[in-house]
Computed example of a mutant assay.
Amino acid sequence: MSRCPGWEALDVLRAAPDGPVAFGADLSPAGLLAAYRAGVYPFPASDEYTRTLNEVVFADQVQQGRIRLVGEESADPYAVSWWSPDPRPVLPVSAVHLSRSLARRLRNKLPWSTTLDRQFERVVLECRADRIPRWLTEELISSLIRLHELGHAHSVEVWEDGNLVGGVFGLRVGSVFSMDSMFFRRSGASKVAVTDLAARFAQAGGVLLDAQRESPHVSGMGGILVPREQYVRHLRPTARDSPPMPTATLPARRLAQPTGSR
């Protein structure tokens, strides 16, 4: 089996476009951040059945070196699959938009407000609730919280009368914000969270929101597909420090206005 010690030794650009690019159990904060910087995101096995299925389906490709193993020899390689789709579904921050009906609701009757990093852990836990498979494992959540403390992971929250009704979270790398998951307790709240994230990230010099997986939800908000090579270029550090995203509590109604007037 072909094993590499870290993501810097894996040529992601030559990996398969539509399956896992690697297996490995390293979900430590450092390992997770290195993976995102390489253009790769994790999908931990939610149970022993999923872990075994990973081995049954992909063991031959691992043996042939078509899928690499990453991390320590002693770790269970099939506990976490790592993905880097080609092409990659992304949302250019300048193109993210709400549907006409949702924008009209925001203008006319929804008293929502948005915040940044006000309740990161709570957003992550809301994203995990009632989800099957439960890929947001305790180990992954612990590392995400640590990366939030270090300033790499962020969340946007949507509020209605003091109640959290939607949110999104993920990691900022280069000019990309990779969205791991979102949730809503009121119809449209997750879309408002993503649109708010795009607006705040644009103010901080961001270019793309990474959707990780293609869906009608993403394409309906302005999503496009870009080649993996192009996506990876956006992950490179900029020559100067990027400014932080604005943290103020803001009215969600502003997101119903044309992009240039937000």
Rank of each mutant, 00 (worst) to 15 (best):
G19W: 09
S142D: 12
L27N: 03
L27C: 12
L250A: 13
G206R: 06
S94I: 12
G71N: 05
Q119Y: 14
M221L: 12
P216L: 07
L110F: 12
L140A: 04
E126T: 11
L102M: 05
S142E: 14
S219A: 15
Q230V: 07
R3I: 07
T114Y: 03
S142H: 13
L98M: 10
E160Y: 01
A34H: 11
Q63Y: 12
G220A: 10
S143W: 13
W135D: 01
V158A: 07
N163Q: 15
E126K: 03
L33T: 05
P42S: 08
L250E: 14
V70S: 01
N108E: 10
E157K: 06
Q119E: 08
G65K: 10
F120I: 08
I67V: 11
F169Q: 10
V40C: 03
K109R: 15
R68I: 06
V123N: 04
A30K: 00
V21C: 13
R118D: 08
C4S: 06
G39V: 09
P258D: 13
S155F: 09
N54K: 08
D76E: 13
A75H: 12
P111D: 04
L208A: 07
L91K: 02
L171Q: 14
A103E: 03
E121H: 08
G6P: 02
W159A: 01
R233F: 09
L208D: 06
M179V: 15
F58V: 08
S219I: 10
T52L: 09
T137M: 11
V96G: 05
G162L: 06
H154W: 00
P111I: 14
V80R: 02
V192W: 01
Q212F: 11
P258I: 15
L53E: 08
A189N: 02
V70D: 00
G223S: 05
Q212H: 14
V93T: 05
T115V: 10
V70K: 01
S187T: 14
E121W: 11
L147C: 08
L255H: 07
W83N: 15
F201E: 06
R233W: 09
L250Y: 11
D47Q: 08
L144C: 09
D196E: 05
G31W: 02
I67A: 12
D117E: 09
A202F: 05
T195K: 06
I145V: 15
I145Y: 00
P133H: 10
S187C: 03
P20Y: 11
R51K: 08
R254K: 14
S242M: 10
Y49I: 12
P77D: 13
A129S: 12
P243H: 02
L125G: 02
